[in-house]
Computed example of a mutant assay.
Amino acid sequence: MDMRRLALPMLLAAAGLGLWMLLAGAESLFGLDLGSIGFAVLVLSAWGALHGVWRLSLTDAELQVSPAEWKAWIGTAFMAAAVAYFVARMHVFQTPSLADSPEAQQVGRNLVMLLVAWTVLSSTVGRRWKDRVQEDERDREIEREAAGWSRHAVTGMIVVLAVLLGISPADRLQWASLPMIANLLVLVLMVGCLVDNGASAVRHWLDRR
């Protein structure tokens, strides 16, 4: 069987394994940090897919997808993984000080590296379409609509969080340490970015149907 046909399923399986390691409840396996291993597997899978795509010539199907849509789908995938990982690890931020929590520091490092990998990957993928128009009026209109959805999502989540903290009795807010509240606000921004990219990707896809 042509190895090229097996490459994509293998990379998808590896990415799924890496994501599972990031989200797994166990902190370590045989003394190794699962989060760090999962992050490495996920990023290497993405780079492997990028390398394979880079070596192939542009197909007719690929040419129908604008560079802006490709970037939106990549952003959606990476932000979905980052949000899922952040939510699965939120319990580590229930600490009076991040300096006293190595687990929280590790989660923060993994998230930063995941977002850096997304930025670098998006920039590198853009070079594949360097000879094409990167953005037209249609792309800008979709970007404005997606930004609107993102603003509504961020506003709604901030209102919900403010109401929750404002009306809850003090004895039920033991979970709301300062690091937890700060990271909840970071999560709100991340979800807003996910909505932005997701809405843009879906709108592009619907326009092509």
Score class of each variant (00 low, 15 high):
P102K: 03
M90G: 08
W70C: 07
A68P: 09
D100M: 13
T95K: 01
K71H: 13
Q106A: 13
R109M: 15
R89F: 05
Q64W: 02
R109T: 15
Q105D: 02
A68V: 06
R109D: 14
A99W: 12
A88D: 01
W73A: 10
F86T: 15
V65Q: 09
A68L: 03
A104R: 00
A72C: 02
A72D: 01
T95Q: 04
S97K: 07
G108S: 13
K71T: 12
E69H: 05
K71W: 02
K71Q: 14
Q64H: 07
F93S: 00
G75E: 04
L63E: 14
A77G: 12
F93P: 01
P96I: 03
V65F: 05
T76V: 06
H91V: 12
E103S: 10
M90P: 10
V83S: 04
A84W: 00
F93A: 00
P102V: 07
F86W: 15
V107A: 11
W73M: 14
E103I: 00
T95E: 10
Q64K: 13
L98H: 02
E103W: 00
V83R: 03
A72E: 01
T95A: 10
A104C: 00
P67L: 07
A81Y: 07
A80F: 04
V92C: 10
V65W: 07
T76R: 06
